[in-house]
């Protein structure tokens, strides 16, 4: 089966920023979390995949079809929730959905209404009168109602309250149940993606610095505290280290090897603890030396 999407040597240049060369792909049925600081290139990647922006170099395919701006077939397979939520402002949410439904072969009015009800979305309100959170919800309904095979979600839970955020994540879980749908999800809220994602890709300054399975990441990274009389330490695999007197705290990407090394150095009171995805992500993004 064709990959959900594939980017090969994609480059998009702006005045003071370049995305790429970007090489990333997504297998069907996988949720890929796309994590990076502000300005890293997450939204630009989404814009390129959705067709809003044309890359200068490279090629992009959606389920094996080039995302050619003059072809419409590939757009039937994607649902996109972007950084900006655009509608006919004087129309109600219902009328906007009716307009959008005309363009999708697999659109289901029943599904749209169910989603709107679930998100408590006021469909009779004009788009211009909707709050930011409700605009996000309307975008989600529009993106999900035609049951797309690939969802491109650019920080979809931004602006949502915790209850609706949980509802959105539950809905996305349901979308994944048949195992054929894929989600490409960029976010700052790592607690969302830690629940949903199978794999994580970290991007910084337009370049992907690491891609790994989520469980592999949480399995590898540990915070280790220990006591050791030493002025300076060089621990392989340690991505950060702090010292207070003789007490050291390091973060390591390979706990097994690091513990061996510490034993050899004569470290005492060694304690290791697991790290959350947020903490690991901060370490990875801070540390330029992590390689993909």
């Amino acid at each position: 089966m064709a990959k959900a999407f594939e980017c090969v040597d994609v480059v998009k240049t702006y005045r003071d920023f370049q995305l790429g060369p970007l090489n990333i792909s997504l297998e069907p049925g996988i949720v890929l979390g796309y994590i990076g600081p502000n300005g890293a290139g997450k939204t630009t990647t989404m814009h390129c995949l959705s067709g809003l922006v044309r890359a200068e170099q490279g090629r992009m395919t959606i389920f094996g079809r080039s995302n050619d701006p003059n072809s419409t077939a590939w757009k039937q397979d994607i649902g996109y929730v972007g950084d900006v939520h655009v509608f006919y402002e004087r129309w109600t949410g219902e009328k906007n959905l009716k307009f959008i439904s005309r363009f999708y072969d697999n659109w289901s009015d029943k599904r749209a209404l169910e989603l709107a009800k679930r998100f408590e979305l006021p469909l009779q309100k004009r788009a211009r009168d909707l709050s930011t959170g409700n605009r996000v919800k309307l975008s989600l309904v529009a993106a999900l109602a035609h049951s797309p095979k690939l969802l491109l979600l650019d920080e979809p839970t931004a602006g949502l309250d915790p209850v609706v955020r949980a509802e959105v994540l539950d809905t996305l879980f349901e979308v994944l149940e048949d195992g054929e749908r894929s989600i490409f999800y960029s976010t700052h809220i790592l607690s969302d993606i830690s629940r949903l994602a199978d794999e994580l890709a970290f991007i910084r300054s337009g370049t992907i610095i690491l891609r790994t399975a989520k469980d592999d990441l949480t399995g590898r990274y540990r915070r280790i505290t220990f006591s050791l009389e030493a002025e300076d330490l060089l621990i392989e695999h340690a991505s950060s280290q702090e010292r207070e007197g003789t007490t050291w705290q390091i973060v390591t990407a390979d706990a097994g090897e690091t513990l061996k090394e510490l034993h050899e150095l004569g470290a005492e009171k060694i304690q290791e603890s697991r790290m959350t995805i947020d903490e690991i992500a901060v370490q990875i993004l801070k540390n330029r030396s992590e390689k993909s």
């Binding site: 067709g51 003059n70 039937q76 996109y80 900006v84 655009v86 006919y88 999708y104």
Partner: peptide, 17 residues
């Protein structure tokens, strides 16, 4: 200028032409 209509249309399955 106010409603980003071009952006909306580009996201739909409508060809550029």
């Amino acid at each position: 200028q106010k409603e980003a209509v071009d952006r909306l249309h580009r996201l739909l399955p409508v060809s550029q032409v």
